[in-house]
Amino acid sequence: MTAAPAPEILRYAAFAASPDGGNPAGIVLDAGALDDAGMLRIAAEIGYPETAFLLGREDGDGSGDGSADSDRRYRIRYWSPAAEVPFCGHATVATAVVLAEREGPGAMVFDTPVGEIALTATTTAEGTAVAFTSVEPAQRELDPDVLARLLDLLGLVPEDLDPAYPPRESFAGNWHPVLVLHDATVFHQFRFAPAPVAALMRERGWTGTVTVLHAVGDGELLARNLFPVGRITEDPATGSAAASTGAYLRGIDRVPADRTVRIHQGAHVGRPSLLTVRIPESGGIVVSGGATPIPG
């Protein structure tokens, strides 16, 4: 009987807007033999916001027609240093870049805990870019009492919210509360205590981040994604939040004419990032970016 290959651990930064930017992701290849405790242990040892575990490959019919049955197909799970995460956009992009580098670009499908994620990887002189399409989005009203508690924890008041962007909860793989602030100074300077925010997130089932935005022009947003897990308090680049933001904008009828949004994130944690979001009239939201190896 042939022993399963030992897991290979890689480290990549996704969505970087500068050489020192992007969100670090761990990528564990050949992870099919790991149990939950093993994946959690490795994610904690790596210490990044999330680590992706590639469990195996199950290809379709090879017709290449773009359907879920025809593309390269992989099983994948995601873990933070504290718990499993249903979906992680930046680790998805980083993993797809690795697969494109090793096996060639093209279409692929990831079977994730939240459903199928269709991806396309393209390689140019500048490197490999990946676009993933989220699962079917959903939205719901943000309970006024919960909103009041969240604002209080962030040191904000209702008057800080941009009246053109009502607060909502938005889903495109993870549930994210979405707040849009009208004042740039308040957006850049608000502070929060991680533990109470983390407790509220667990209570509400917000498995992604708390997404706080500021609109700087048509199709341009600044984002801060609060992710108080262990020593990590704010995410440099959040693919699932970018998808949820696209769904949110579609839900409140604030989609730009070209149906594309650029999200600038990570400046507050010293890792500038850029996420490009395409918002079709229906269906999943498309998030694009690249990833590069982290030296050392």
Rank of each mutant, 00 (worst) to 15 (best):
T209E: 07
T92Y: 09
I232M: 03
F171E: 01
P163H: 07
P280Y: 14
L181N: 10
A237S: 07
D69H: 15
I46W: 01
S18G: 12
G32W: 12
V85Q: 13
E159M: 07
S80P: 10
V269D: 04
G230Y: 02
A4E: 04
I285V: 14
E220N: 02
H188S: 13
A243G: 11
R262C: 04
L179S: 10
G115N: 10
V135A: 06
G60K: 04
T233S: 09
D35H: 03
D258I: 00
E141M: 03
F87G: 00
E234A: 01
A215R: 10
V210R: 02
A100N: 13
I252D: 09
S240E: 03
D59H: 15
T260S: 14
V93Y: 05
G251K: 03
T209C: 05
L34K: 08
Y12F: 10
E84G: 14
P158R: 15
S80I: 15
V287W: 01
V210P: 08
T276A: 00
G283H: 09
G104M: 07
R262P: 10
T2K: 12
E203W: 08
G270I: 14
L181H: 07
E220W: 00
A237N: 06
R204P: 03
G62H: 13
G56T: 09
A33Y: 03
D65E: 06
G239S: 10
A138Y: 11
P113T: 08
A195L: 15
P5C: 09
I232P: 05
G32H: 13
L221M: 07
H268D: 07
L147D: 08
R41N: 04
G239L: 09
P293D: 02
A121M: 00
G217A: 11
T211E: 12
T238L: 01
A243Q: 01
P86R: 15
E220M: 02
M201C: 12
G290D: 06
L161K: 09
P163K: 01
R254P: 15
R140P: 12
P228G: 11
H176M: 04
F187R: 02
L153N: 08
F171N: 06
G115D: 09
A215W: 07
A138R: 15
A193C: 00
V261Q: 05
D183Y: 01
V210D: 09
Q139H: 11
S70L: 12
P280R: 14
A107M: 13
A13R: 12
D143E: 15
S288R: 15
I263Y: 04
L154E: 08
A172T: 03
G127I: 01
D218V: 14
D183F: 03
L54H: 01
V97E: 13
A172C: 03
D36S: 12
E50M: 05
A184N: 06
